[in-house]
Amino acid sequence: MTEEIIIAGFGGQGVLSMGKILAYSGIMQDQEVAWMPSYGPEMRGGTANVTVILSDERISSPILTKYDTAIVLNQQSMDKFESMVKPGGTLIYDPNGITHEPTRKDINIYKIEGTAIAAEQGNPKVFNMIVLGGFLKVKPIVKLDNVEKGLQKSLPPRHHKMIPMNIEAIQTGMKSVEVVNQL
C-alpha cells in the first residue's frame, strides 16, 4: 500500500500541521513516510501545501506530479491540484471560499464543511483536524490510536492537554464528510 497525498490551502489553516500529524501517524504504524512542506515567504495568508507519502515499501522520491489524494482548502489550491489527482483518485475539499466546485468525473470527490463545523463548535483551531477526520473516514490508512500517538509526537508537550479535543474533532470530521462523486 502506498498513498501519495497533497494537502493544500492558505498558511494559517493548519495545512502543514495536518501533514505532519499524518506523517507521524504513519511512523507510529511502522510505515515508510515522506513529508515535504512547501509555502510562500508570507506564510500566514499565503499559499501552503505539503506532500505526504505513506507506504509499506521504501519511498524512492518525495517529488510527485500526480497524487492519489488531494485535500484542498482554498480556490487557488483547487485550481492547481484538481487536475493532479490520478484517475480513480480522491479529492476532498472544504467548500468555504471555493467559488468553482470540482468538475472531474473520473475521481472520487468528497466535501467536508470543516470551517462551518469548527465555527459552530466555537473553536476554529480544530478546523484542520475535522478535515483530517473526513480524510481518514474516506481513506482509513492510519488507525485512530496511531493518530493520537502522532499528535503526541508532533505537538509540543505544553499542548498535549489539547489532544482529546483534537481526537474529538477528528471523530466529528469522520461523521461529517459528504460524497459528491463516487466511482
Rank of each mutant, 00 (worst) to 15 (best):
G89Q: 10
V33L: 03
L144M: 15
G12C: 09
T172Q: 04
M1T: 08
M78Q: 11
V177L: 09
Q29N: 05
L54G: 08
N108A: 14
I112G: 00
G40L: 02
I59L: 08
P140Q: 00
Q13P: 00
F127Q: 14
P87E: 12
I130L: 04
E57F: 08
D145S: 12
I7Y: 06
T47H: 13
A48Y: 01
I109A: 09
L132R: 04
M18K: 08
F135W: 15
G40A: 10
G9V: 12
S55V: 15
I170H: 06
R58D: 08
V52W: 14
I71D: 03
L54A: 09
S176Q: 12
A70T: 07
N181F: 10
D145C: 06
K20G: 04
E32K: 06
P95G: 08
K86V: 14
K66V: 11
V72K: 13
G19D: 10
I112R: 00
G89R: 11
I109M: 10
D145P: 12
V177A: 09
V177K: 02
S60R: 10
Q75M: 08
K66M: 12
K105Q: 15
Q121V: 07
H100D: 09
P37F: 05
V15D: 07
P157F: 04
P41A: 15
G26T: 05
V50R: 02
T90S: 10
E101M: 10
L136C: 10
K143I: 01
I53P: 07
I21K: 03
E42W: 09
T172G: 00
R158T: 11
P41R: 15
G11K: 02
F81M: 03
E32T: 03
P164V: 00
G114Y: 10
